[in-house]
Design a protein around this nucleic acid. Structure first.
Length: 423
DNA sequence: TCTGGGGTCCTAGGACCC
DNA sequence: TCTGGGGTCCTAGGACCC
C-alpha cells in the first residue's frame, strides 16, 4: 500500500497574516490581499527587499526577493508593510494546531509549510485535504494550498500549482500531464545555477530533464544531477520527520545601516552578533567548536573565514574574541556592508573541558552571562546592555548604530557585566 | 538590478598521517 | 633526489531551501 502525503503551504504567508491581523485584530477595513501590497524591509536600514506580496501586485511584475525600490518603480501605489515576526510565529502555531487534529505525523518544514503523513487514514485523501483547507480559512482567516500525493516531493510540487485556497493532487500517473510541461526551474532543488546549466544543455522543461541520461547529468552536475533527475521522475522516499533534528550550527548576521570602515565599529557589531549567537547556544545547552565570520563588502562580494576552538564554548566573550581575530585576518580594508558570525561543530555533552591556562574563569563568566540571559528573557532584550553600546549610541555623528540597542532609553538599567572584555 | 537573514548539504584542495 | 596510494581533518566556497 502506498503512502499518502500532504504538503500544506500558506498562500503569501507574511502578507496574508498581516492582512488578517489588521482586519480582525486591529479592526481595519482594508484587506491587504485585495490591493497591490507587500511585506518589505526598511530601505533606510538597507533591508529593503520584498519578503511577500499580495496577488494583485503580481500583475505589476513584482517578485519576492527584489528590492523595495524596484517594486515601487513598477507600482508606485504599492502598499508596503514592515515584517512582524512574532505575528508570524503566532499565526504558524495556530495553523499547526489545526493540522494536528488530522495526524501527529507532521513535519514542520518552515514557518509556513508542513508535511503531513496521512498514510493509513480511512477517509479519502482529497476530502480531508479540502476539509483542512476550509477549516483554516474559516477559523483562521487566511488560506492555504494543499498538495496531495504519495511522497513529499510530489506533494510539494502539487501545492505550488494554482493559488490561492486550492487542493491539487499529483499522483505518479499524473506526472507527464501536470509536471513535465513545467519550466525546469520550477522543480524543487533546481535553483538559479542549476537552471542556467540545464539551459546550456538545452533543457527547458522538467520533462526534458526526465528524459536525460542520468550518467550524463552526473558528469555535468555531480550528485546534484542525479537528485534532480530523480525528482523529475517524481522519485522521493524521504520520510516525514516528526522530531526536528538537532541544530548543526547557530548564526547571526546583519546588513549594517551604512558601510563600515572602522575596525572598532565592525568589532562592536560582531559583539552584538556574538551575544545573540551565544545566548542561543546557552539556551539550547550547546557549545560550538568552530567559529566563522563572513563579510560582504560594499560590492556585495562575500568572504568567510573560520577557526576551530581549542575548547568548545558557549560564552559571548570567547566567541567574540575568536570573531575579532578572524576579522583581523580576513578584512582587507574594503567598506563593509554585511557582517555575520556562524558557529558549528556543536556539542551537547554539557561539560566544559578546562584548559591548562584559562583566559577567563569559565564558571564565573558563564554564570554572569546566564544571569543576563535571564534578565533579558524577563524584561526584554533591551533591559541589559553593554556600556560600549550606550556610549557609541550617544556619540555624535553616529546615531545610526541605534538599532543595536533597539532604541533603549538611558534611564533603563544597564549592566556592564564584562567591563574588561569590552573593546 | 544594487540583492535580508535563517539554515543545510556538497565539493575541492591542502595538510598531515601511515 | 625522486617517488605511491589511501585515509582523515580542516577550510573555503558554492548551491539550495524558506
Amino acid at each position: 500500500m502506498g503512502r499518502v502525503i500532504f504538503h500544506i503551504d500558506v498562500n503569501s504567508a507574511f502578507l496574508s497574516w498581516e492582512a488578517v491581523y489588521r482586519l480582525y485584530h486591529l479592526g481595519g477595513t482594508l484587506d491587504l490581499r485585495t490591493v497591490p501590497s507587500a511585506v518589505g524591509g526598511d530601505q533606510e536600514k538597507r533591508h529593503g527587499i520584498i519578503l511577500a506580496k499580495s496577488n494583485p501586485s503580481r500583475k505589476y511584475g513584482i517578485r519576492t526577493g527584489e528590492t523595495v525600490l524596484e517594486a515601487k518603480q513598477k507600482c508606485p501605489d504599492l502598499i508596503l508593510v514592515p515584517p512582524n515576526y512574532s505575528l508570524y510565529d503566532r499565526s504558524s502555531k495556530a495553523l499547526m494546531k489545526i493540522l494536528r487534529d488530522y495526524t501527529d505525523r507532521i513535519e514542520l518544514y518552515s514557518i509556513d509549510e508542513a508535511f503531513l503523513d496521512m498514510t493509513g487514514c480511512s477517509r479519502e485523501p482529497e476530502k480531508t485535504a479540502h476539509e483542512i483547507r476550509n477549516r483554516v480559512r474559516e477559523e483562521l482567516g487566511f488560506t492555504v494550498n494543499v498538495g496531495v500525493s504519495c511522497n513529499k516531493l510530489l506533494a510539494k510540487m502539487a501545492s505550488d500549482f494554482t493559488k490561492p485556497d486550492r487542493v491539487h493532487t499529483l499522483w505518479p500517473r499524473e506526472i507527464p500531464d501536470k509536471m513535465w510541461p513545467l519550466p525546469v526551474g520550477d522543480l524543487f532543488y533546481v535553483g538559479h545555477a542549476s537552471k542556467r546549466k540545464l539551459y546550456d544543455l538545452g533543457i527547458h522543461t522538467i520533462g526534458q530533464l526526465a528524459a536525460m541520461e542520468p550518467k550524463y547529468l552526473r558528469a555535468v552536475m555531480k550528485s546534484h544531477g542525479i537528485l534532480i533527475w530523480q525528482y523529475a521522475h517524481g522519485l522521493d522516499d524521504s520520510p516525514v520527520v516528526t522530531e526536528p533534528p538537532l541544530q548543526k550550527g547557530y548564526g547571526n548576521s546583519l546588513t549594517t545601516p551604512r558601510d563600515v570602515t572602522e575596525p572598532w565599529l565592525a568589532k562592536q557589531f560582531l559583539l552584538s552578533l556574538a551575544e545573540t549567537v551565544s545566548a542561543r547556544l546557552r539556551a539550547d545547552g550547546a557549545k560550538a567548536g568552530v567559529v566563522s565570520i563572513s563579510i560582504r563588502d560594499y560590492n556585495l562580494v562575500f568572504t568567510g573565514h573560520q577557526m576551530m576552538l581549542r575548547t568548545p564554548t558557549d560564552l559571548t566573550v570567547e566567541i567574540h574574541e575568536a570573531a575579532c581575530r578572524l576579522f583581523d585576518e580576513l578584512w582587507t580594508g574594503l567598506p563593509i556592508r554585511h557582517l555575520g558570525i556562524h558557529t558549528g561543530a556543536v556539542s551537547r555533552d554539557g561539560v566544559r573541558q578546562y584548559e591548562m591556562f584559562e583566559k577567563v574563569d569559565y564558571d564565573k563568566q558563564r554564570k554572569a552571562e546566564e544571569a543576563v540571559d535571564a534578565l533579558r528573557k524577563r524584561y526584554g532584550a533591551d533591559s541589559v546592555m553593554r556600556a560600549c553600546f550606550l556610549e557609541s549610541r550617544t556619540e555624535p555623528g553616529r546615531p545610526w548604530i541605534d538599532h543595536m540597542g533597539g532604541g533603549i532609553s538611558r534611564e533603563k538599567r544597564t549592566v556592564d557585566y564584562t567591563r574588561e572584555n569590552v573593546l
